[in-house]
Design a protein around this nucleic acid. Structure first.
Lengths: 243, 243
DNA sequence: CGACCCCTTGATTAGCCTCAACAACCGTGG
DNA sequence: CCACGGTTGTTGAGGCTAATCAAGGGGTCG
């Protein structure tokens, strides 16, 4: 019943009691959602943020011609909706990819953190900067690498990010994503994702059974994908002292 | 001789004297660079940030096969290097695209802002969130739109972002970018960028003479590009009070 | 003036998309 | 229990977009 956000941030820094107290209020309202629930639509007025407590989500936009681009997947511990802080209408649609539970909190809470807990604010800032790097990595992947490398890269990212919260080993994972989801995240069609995954299987880089995927040769997979794990550690040395 | 960062932030919010004072120290060391100067290499140890005072810059990565992806262009008033706050080695190379002058400041300064100027910290946070949205827009552009739309989109973005500082009218702009730069930013080859620009010219959407580009029919250009200006206004209503 | 960079255009190739058909696997209701 | 529709995965054939390869032109700088 602790805060998921606190748990996530604790991976990078030991929080003080004061800081814990500030985060405790955040996840008061928890909400359980079935797979496919739309938490927010593009252009919705967005005044609240979410912390993922369990399950996976994604955010996407739909372009003029009906095609969809998935911007990002979200896993337990992730904060959703920071990007709509700057805009008062949401730039993207947010949907659950599996059954999930999220905790909503509003901007005022974040405001309070900036005002009274500078170290916490700076830490959140830093974590979102790591996210930004990871989005940029995806940009390079989509812009400059082959279909095969893109699929390899999204798999690496999913595994790497899930490791942060699960800590330790993780070579097999139940993917609640369809191949169309993977395609919309990598800028490919579902058909082509299918072919690429078959290729990765045939070459012994991954293995599948049902929805489960196992990274058989993660080193080679990461190397083909040009993948770098941005989440393993983050630098907190510059943060102000805790208050 | 005021702070460029202060000027940029003032576009979104009226800064107090205290806040101005905090920003004044930032741009003490100014540095003039010729076009093509590398300010930072991928993997460099990065302890400082930059504010652009004049000129344009870009950040990019080079992939295993030698291809280059430009992550972002930077214009006067932009902060460079925030993404390396989280990592102690730079994820990208930073280069001047034209002659430019930048002011370097170090993390301690930012730390001070978080500690003593919560409103300023929150504002910087908000601006970087707007940037994140803009990066996501590029992701969708590269992932899901045609070459023509991508070129249209990068042009729209360049104009929109330059308008923030220049304020007011801006329909013609001297681009210090080569077509290869545009290609590396949009995930295309220089050759294909050339053809797309010709197409946009022939259809009367843009006009060129030398390096100058003019948006003739910006509305149609933006619509073809699926472009949305994320910088025009940003929401500052949630910020804590100034201190 | 030559070397280099950048732009431009044409011809050909390759990677990924589209369309299509079918199989496997659900949850639902009869 | 099975029949059913709906969704997802799989595979093949063919087409289109953008890459590649190639050649030439203009501009600029030493």
């Amino acid at each position: 019943m602790g805060s998921c956000l606190a748990e996530r941030l604790s991976h990078y820094l030991e929080l003080t009691e004061n800081e814990h107290a500030a985060l405790d209020g955040i996840e008061a309202q928890q909400r359980h959602c079935k797979r496919g629930t739309i938490l927010r639509r593009e252009q919705d007025r967005a005044r609240e943020l979410f912390v993922v407590r369990s399950g996976w989500l994604q955010s996407h936009v739909v372009l003029g011609d009906g095609s969809r681009q998935i911007m990002r997947f979200f896993f337990p511990g992730d904060i959703i909706g920071l990007s709509s802080l700057a805009l008062d209408h949401s730039p993207e649609t947010i949907v659950t990819v599996s059954d999930a539970s999220v905790a909503a909190f509003n901007r005022e809470k974040l405001c309070d953190i900036f005002e009274n807990h500078p170290r916490l604010a700076a830490l959140i800032f830093t974590v979102t900067m790591a996210e930004r790097v990871s989005i940029s990595d995806r940009l390079a992947s989509i812009g400059r690498t082959s279909a095969r490398a893109r699929v390899a890269s999204i798999l690496c990212e999913i595994f790497a990010r899930n490791r942060v919260m699960l800590k330790g080993e993780l070579s097999e994972l139940q993917l609640p994503l369809t191949q169309e989801d993977l395609g919309d995240a990598t800028g490919l069609t579902a058909v082509h994702v299918n072919r690429m995954m078959r290729g990765l299987m045939d070459d012994g880089l991954i293995a599948r059974s049902g929805n489960k995927v196992r990274l058989v040769d993660e080193k080679r997979l990461a190397s083909e994908a040009n993948f770098i794990d941005r989440y393993a550690t983050i630098d907190t040395s510059w943060l102000p002292p805790a208050r």
